[in-house]
Design a protein around this nucleic acid. Sequence first.
RNA 1: GGUCCCAUCGUCUAGUGGCCUAGGAUAUCGCCCUCUCACGGCGGAGACACGGGUUCGAGUCCCGUUGGGACUACCA
Length: 505
Amino acid sequence: MENSSCSREEKKMNQEVRLRFAPSPTGYLHIGGARTAIYNWLYARKTGGKLILRIEDTDAERSTEESIQGILDGLRWLGVTWDEGPYFQSQFGEEHRAAARKLLESGKAYKCFCTREELEKKREIAREQKLDFSYDGTCRKLSPAEVEAKEAAGLPYTIRLKVPEGDGAVVFEDLVYGRIEKKYADIEDFVICRSNGQPLYLLSNAVDDARDRISHVIRGQDGLANTPKQILIYQALGLPVPRFAHMSLTLDPKRAKISKRSHGELVAVHFYREHGFLPWALVNFLVLLGWSNPDSREFFSRDELIEAFDLGGIKRANSIFNVQKNDPKFITDPKAISMNAHYLREMPVEELEPYVVAELKKAGIWQPEFAAERRDWFLKTIDLIRSRYHFLTDFATLGRPYFADDFGIEEKALKKNLLKYPDLKEWLPLLADRFAALEDFSAAETERVIREVIEELDVKAGVIINGMRTAVTGQLKGAGMFEILEILGRQRVVDRLRRVVQFFT
RNA sequence: GGUCCCAUCGUCUAGUGGCCUAGGAUAUCGCCCUCUCACGGCGGAGACACGGGUUCGAGUCCCGUUGGGACUACCA
């Protein structure tokens, strides 16, 4: 009894679920990377496992501190939380080199003295003959004496892994793609260490994953082709092989992999942040790009998503992120916008509040009283105007007339709703007088007065109401007029209605 | 070129041999609501890449074709 419980305990330890997100800091966090991070995060949260963040910064030339910060900021903003790290791959160089030495000593790898020029030449020839070039094993056949002689001569060498010979194959069960088999014969003796002694990605990555006791590697499908090579490394090193789950890639409308180079800011997480996306809306959208729940649900709370997420729901086919370049109507994938708008109008207004506060502060129209004595009014205002907004930024732009007095008048609105009816010059101030005399400035009361005046003047309701709309908000469209009046309050409404005469010169 | 992966409305997707005259979402169009614009409601148009099998029956299984993608570095 005692024994079995002990081994069960051990088993449990070994089965601990550990995920990692391992970006290389060569630019901002883009939506492809974010999606990978989100899937790892979800799986960790679902299984009660850990998410490790590892920065793969061994490419010193391309890695930047700024980029590291950008990635961390992006993850934090999205709400992707990690349990360990960030670790930095560059700090484990000695460990990677030791692994290479070990492989060399155990005969699982060998020194290759072929120069780049020689290899390039062979590649060239193969290309001309329309043949496939994979390393021909020239140096694998070198005798110990030959190796010694070359080394003594000071010739630089790379280290290559000895891929097993024979008819065998590397086989693994991908959690998304199923059984994957790659014949040894189709894998060349690949380089694991550069001639300057620097270990290569395939090696470092495997060593790091083993050290961090990663149990599941969830990454882009572009890693699928490398997986057999990495498994060979694990095996040669005698390390446990993690489970792999490869996820479909995110393509642009032209079916090319999205990249910082060709899409710039449009695919950067910070672009969505700056353009008024709610982080959760973006997460929700990104998760659905290549994953779905059997019940076709589209909106998930954080807890619901963690509960519903599973690797089996990841699609094998790549999906297209429908970026709309230079589209006057959409700044990005319409579905992403629609989801953002959905959350904007459906989420509890108290949860939306801090985001709106931030926008108003950014725009310089924030008033401390909105969080104090006028907080009820503030929340009601947000609730009134949010149904026609798509982005958080709209609260500071389209919403400006509700929070500040210096707002502009839309050209079209001025012409269509005001100047077209010169009599408004008299009518609107008249309305202002009636409002001023009103005891109760409620939506119901203002509506009563307005209907009264319409009756007296015998004009079309729309002329008065839309004229007022433009007078008090500067806009052509917006919420119901009477609700707007009540929200704006008597003083503002009266002032704005009287001020309107200036436009009729 | 070689190796591997993939293939349902424009886009995201449901679908694991009969429930599919293929469902939902988004975008688009129309109608309703209406003081405008949204929201909301209702409705329209819109897909199983193609060809062979297997089967009583195929979007679903097999093969081929076509198309797309990834990988193919002393980058990560």
